[in-house]
Structure formats: C-alpha cells, structure tokens
C-alpha cells in the first residue's frame, strides 16, 4: 500500500506555531515577564527578554531570584503542556482555537518546585530548557536548566513535580 504523502511544511508549521502561541499568549503573567518560546521540532527553549523591572539587586545589578524561579517554572509548565497537547493537536482532536476552552484544555498544576541558584543572573536575556524526567498519568517530574551567554555555565537549575490535567469525566 502506498504511504500517504507528508503534509506540506508550511501547513505543519502553521498548525504547531498557532497552537503554541495560543498556549503562551493566553497567560497574562508570561506577557508580564515577556517570556517567549523558540520551537525546533519538539524542542522548546524559553526566552526571557531582559527588562529593567526584572532586576532584584540594583547594586550588582542582578535578576530577581523570583524572576529566575518564575522563568524556570513557566518553561517547565509550557514544555509539559506542549508534550501533553501536541499529540492531540497533530491528530486533529484539538486546534489553536480550543486552547482557550477550559472544558477542553487544562494545564498541569505545580505541586512543588525547587530552584538552585548557581550564579547571579546578569542583566540580559536568559534561556531555559525543560526535560521531562517522567510523565505519568497523574504526576510528572521535570528538570529545568537556565543559562545566559554560555550554555555550559548554567545560572540556575530547578526540579519540580506537577499534577497532570485529568479528564473532565474523572471521578463522576
């Protein structure tokens, strides 16, 4: 049997980018911190765009530890949501317009989050990538790394546990 023709690249890109944008742009706090996401295949990189309001120590100056933590947590939640939602988007079960629908799409909830501050965050852009150590039906365990000028010199790392969204019919 002949294999079906692959979809044109722009169709695939448009569908995935629209879904990712719908997830990210819907969250006011992500806009407040001005975090964006770079997508390369299934890999996401969080980008924290520097702004003066992110400073926590004006004397050094350095990024606020809470900003670093929030950036890592946002990257973890978006990466986890993306991993969870992408198959549904690819199968046609969901599209970008469904993301805002609370009944159809729910996001993982943070149970706990631990941040190691390895060096102070410089007053410039930062990048982060999350690695899903385990994604079970109920719980997920995620590790996140953040760096600035040099990927080999992380300025923070974190790990956390998340409660995965349960089907709406659960327990009824």
């Amino acid at each position: 049997m002949a294999r079906s023709r692959p979809e044109p690249v722009q169709v695939v890109k448009q569908r995935r980018d629209a879904a990712l944008n719908a997830i990210v742009e819907g969250v006011p706090y992500i806009r407040f911190l001005d975090i964006g996401f770079d997508r390369r295949g299934d890999e996401l990189t969080g980008v924290l765009n520097f702004d003066q309001k992110l400073i926590g120590n004006p004397l050094l100056p350095a990024l606020h530890g809470g900003v670093t933590a929030a950036f890592l947590e946002v990257t973890a939640v978006i990466t986890l949501s993306w991993e969870f939602l992408l198959p549904k988007i690819e199968s046609g079960e969901l599209d970008a317009s469904d993301i805002a629908d609370y009944e159809k799409v729910r996001f993982p909830k943070t149970v706990d989050f631990t941040v190691d501050y390895l060096r102070s965050g410089l007053p410039r852009d930062a990048y982060a990538r999350a690695f899903i150590s385990r994604a079970g039906r109920r719980y997920a365990s995620v590790r996140v790394e953040a760096w600035q000028d040099n990927h080999a010199r992380l300025f923070a790392q974190a790990s956390g546990h998340f409660l995965m969204p349960q089907p709406a019919t659960d327990g009824k």
């Binding site: 969250v27 006011p28 706090y29 900003v67 929030a70 609370y102």
Partner: peptide, 20 residues
C-alpha cells in the same frame, strides 16, 4: 490581572507567589 497564570480562572501564577 498582570500576574494571572490561567486567564480562565483568574488565579495568580505560582511564579509570582514564588517571587514574593
């Protein structure tokens, strides 16, 4: 409203609580 993590519920993002 700027600190909301889920616009559908209006709940503050955990990251903002972390920062505080």
């Amino acid at each position: 409203k700027e600190l909301v993590g889920d616009p559908r519920t209006g709940v503050i993002h955990g990251g903002a609580v972390f920062a505080a």
